[in-house]
């Protein structure tokens, strides 16, 4: 059974408004790293809120571990299993001391004091913020705040982490730190990750990329598959990393370069090799 299973999901905020999601089908397996991209208004954030029952479908179904989000009695177990991190690092921390904030989730689960302490400890360590346990959030950088937000979710021991544009408001250093943390969670702890982003370079880390446009999934595949369709990606108003685009243009111009090259050295070596053959 997949961890998350979405079937024919339709949703609109108001009866008299347009549909935001128009028949989305999606499965996420345990331990999978899925990246969802799409421009504003493509419905990706709405989709994210569906995953832990912050929103429930008008039509269709969202099942988490086989349980429907639309049923009231499932909701708290679903929210425990599907942790959610949001865009604005300032607006999701509750307490004015880091470790108190991380404890907030476990406290809501009604765990014992000793258990909470242990979980806070572990979560701080995983995100590499143990030195800042007694700090106040407003003295931390955006990237650090996001890592605290992730730790707050980890302490609830979820099966899947949903990140709704967590890097959009960060500087490059913060973005890199957050992505490194997310990648570690996925690879070392085997946690499933659904990461929503505008940054196509972050999409390179995924097992699977999902491109959304106008409330539908329009492309789906591995990074290799997606990035070899540069013109297609551009059609959906998404960024293409410079390197990918360069490789793509070179291959179009007749060079034997594949467009799914993701690092500079690889391209340089390939070019040198091609040149030596001339």
């Amino acid at each position: 059974m997949p961890l998350i299973e979405i079937a024919d999901l339709c949703y609109r905020y108001n009866q008299d408004q347009d549909w935001i999601l128009k028949g989305v089908d999606l499965k996420v397996d345990s331990g999978e790293f899925v990246v969802i991209v799409g421009h504003n208004g493509s419905g990706k954030s709405t989709l994210a809120k569906m995953l832990n029952g912050l929103l429930v479908p008008d039509e269709g179904e969202v099942l988490v571990n086989g349980k429907a989000t639309s049923r009231e009695e499932n909701i708290w177990e679903i929210r425990r299993q599907i942790g959610m991190v949001f865009q604005n690092p300032d607006n999701q921390l509750v307490a004015n001391i880091v470790e108190e904030d991380i404890a907030f989730g476990p406290e809501n689960l009604g765990l014992e004091s000793a258990v909470i302490k242990k979980r806070v400890e572990e979560a701080l360590e995983v995100v590499g913020m143990d030195k800042f346990r007694r700090n106040a959030p407003h003295n931390l950088s955006g990237g650090q705040k996001q890592r605290i937000a992730i730790a707050g979710i980890l302490a609830m021991h979820p099966k899947c982490l949903v990140l709704d544009e967590p890097t959009a408001m960060l500087d490059p250093v913060g973005r890199k730190d957050v992505m490194t943390t997310v990648q570690e969670l996925n690879q070392e702890l085997g946690m499933a990750v659904v990461h929503i982003t505008h940054f196509m370079t972050e999409a390179l880390l995924a097992d699977r990329i999902i491109v959304m446009d106008q409330g539908k999934i329009v492309l789906e595949g591995t990074p290799q598959e997606i990035f070899s369709q540069v013109d297609e990606i551009k059609k959906y108003h998404l960024d293409v990393p410079q390197l990918t685009e360069l490789a793509f243009r070179l291959s179009q111009a007749g060079l034997d370069v594949s467009p799914d090259i993701f690092n500079v050295d690889e391209l340089v070596e390939k070019l040198c090799y091609l040149k030596s053959k001339i």
């Binding site: 912050l54 929210r79 108190e100 404890a103 406290e107 809501n108 009604g110």
Partner: peptide, 27 residues
């Protein structure tokens, strides 16, 4: 207000449902 909306969503996502059944880390 925008922050309050965001925070409410984040708190709900972290299973906050008022004081019922809530425990504390520091007793």
């Amino acid at each position: 207000f925008r922050r309050a909306d965001d925070l409410a969503l984040a708190m709900e996502s972290r299973c906050y449902r008022g004081g019922e059944n809530r425990t504390r880390m520091n007793v």
